[in-house]
Computed example of a mutant assay.
Amino acid sequence: MKRPLRSGYTTGACAAAAAKGAALLLRDGQPAGTVTIALPSGEEARFTLHRQEREADSATCSVIKDAGDDPDITNGAEIVATVASLTGESSVVIVGGSGVGRVTKPGLAVAVGEWAINPVPRQMITAAVRSVFPEPASVQVAIAITNGAELAQKTLNNRLGIVGGLSILGTTGIVRPISARAWTDTIDAAIDVALACGSTTVVLSTGRTSEVVAQTPLQLPEEAFVMMGDHIGYALASCSRKGVAEVVLACQFAKLVKIACGHEQTHVSSSELDLQMLASWVRSEPRISGLESRARQANTARQLLEDSDNDSALIELVAVRARAFARKLAPESEVKVLLAGYDGKVLYFA
């Protein structure tokens, strides 16, 4: 019997916990083993504190992020907060430190030029510090992520316009295991950035290989290219909802067949059924009806395409059906299909 998947905490929740630990150390002069913070839902969460250092007018504390069973690039990262006393009017000033990025492109939740610490984490950090230093105290909170710049190289942050490190994120404080939320949030953010940068066309690719193939003929700014992975339905609906004028679906043949078969999620394991459906389409198309037996015997869609020597009628048959399905999901956008060949060439674009 499989054990239940374990939830974890966002970078925002970890930053708030580290900030509270640092505030307590600054106030009391004694390190605490754990802290409890309030999450946006009203629940409370307890965090074990890691590194703790006290100086004359500041204190530093860190939390090791536990993302639970979610495959998160920041799982195990050290989230660090330094709280320092300020003079002047009552305030909690939040800044970024080493490993936290800055926003360089419009369309994100934080303005250009600001540290990439999102609004809800800012609220959580402020509340955590205020529970220790109530008004009218004035303090600065600097949030850092150990090795954050290196970890950021494994994300899409640079394309989104977050440079120099990672973002401090989270709307609930909790990371749900193996959920698609992190990916779909990134899709939404990427589309927002594309629109804010003036792009009227968004290229949705299922993977980096397809994206690279699409970049040369389309000659669009990098912000226009959005990696959607398997989230076809979500990405198309998001483009339509946000008013994207033109959407280009960039993918290879196997994914294109899945879209043509009506799958909003292309990770679904129904390859055999998809090939049988494709075979029935081939049978009804006189130009390629001779490929029916190959379609029924093929192990993969890629095998059929290669066995057909990239037959243009076969490609068009699938592309037209895929485009028709995509247009149902994105009725407010004009949808085109770009088929990336397995040899790195564009096989179809219309």
Rank of each mutant, 00 (worst) to 15 (best):
R159P: 04
A250S: 12
E223Q: 12
D309R: 14
M1C: 10
P119W: 07
L278Y: 03
A295F: 07
H263W: 10
N118S: 11
G68F: 04
E78P: 04
D309G: 11
D28K: 04
L275S: 03
S312M: 15
T34R: 14
L39E: 10
A77H: 01
E306S: 11
I259A: 01
R46T: 15
A330V: 10
A116K: 00
I37P: 02
Q219A: 15
A350F: 08
E285V: 14
G170D: 09
R3C: 14
R46S: 15
E44Y: 12
S271M: 10
A67G: 06
S7K: 14
D188S: 08
V163E: 09
R6A: 14
A237H: 15
R181P: 11
G88F: 00
A56Y: 11
M228I: 08
A298H: 00
I125L: 06
V203N: 05
D230L: 04
R241Q: 15
T82G: 00
G21N: 06
I232N: 01
S199F: 03
I94W: 07
L24C: 09
I37H: 01
C61V: 09
R159H: 02
D57F: 14
E150L: 11
A237N: 12
Y342V: 08
T266S: 04
E114Q: 13
A189V: 06
G262D: 09
R3F: 15
L275R: 04
P31K: 01
S167P: 00
A260E: 05
A13I: 07
K258L: 12
I94N: 07
R159T: 00
T209D: 15
V335D: 02
G198M: 11
R51V: 10
D72I: 02
R321F: 03
L156G: 05
V282M: 08
D192Q: 15
V247R: 02
P71L: 09
E78H: 05
S238M: 13
V92R: 04
D311C: 09
V132R: 02
K242E: 03
T186N: 06
G101D: 02
L26S: 06
L339H: 04
A23C: 10
I191S: 10
S333G: 13
E89M: 12
G76W: 00
D70A: 08
T155D: 07
V248D: 00
Q276I: 10
A16W: 04
G8C: 07
A59L: 08
L39R: 05
G207C: 15
V268N: 00
L24K: 03
R27S: 15
E211H: 11
E292K: 10
A260P: 07
G107H: 03
L338D: 00
A84N: 03
Q52D: 01
E89W: 13
G262Y: 00
L338G: 04
S269Q: 14
L218R: 05
V346K: 05
A111W: 13
I187N: 00
R130M: 06
Q276S: 11
I178E: 13
A19F: 10
A330P: 09
A15Y: 07
A322T: 07
V92I: 13
L160H: 01
A15V: 09
L249N: 02
T146H: 15
Q30G: 13
G290S: 15
S333I: 13
E114P: 03
E78I: 11
R130G: 05
S293G: 14
D70E: 05
P121I: 01
A324M: 12
N147Y: 12
D72N: 02
A235M: 13
G68D: 07
V175A: 03
E43C: 05
Y342C: 08
V132S: 08
G76E: 07
S7M: 12
G12Y: 09
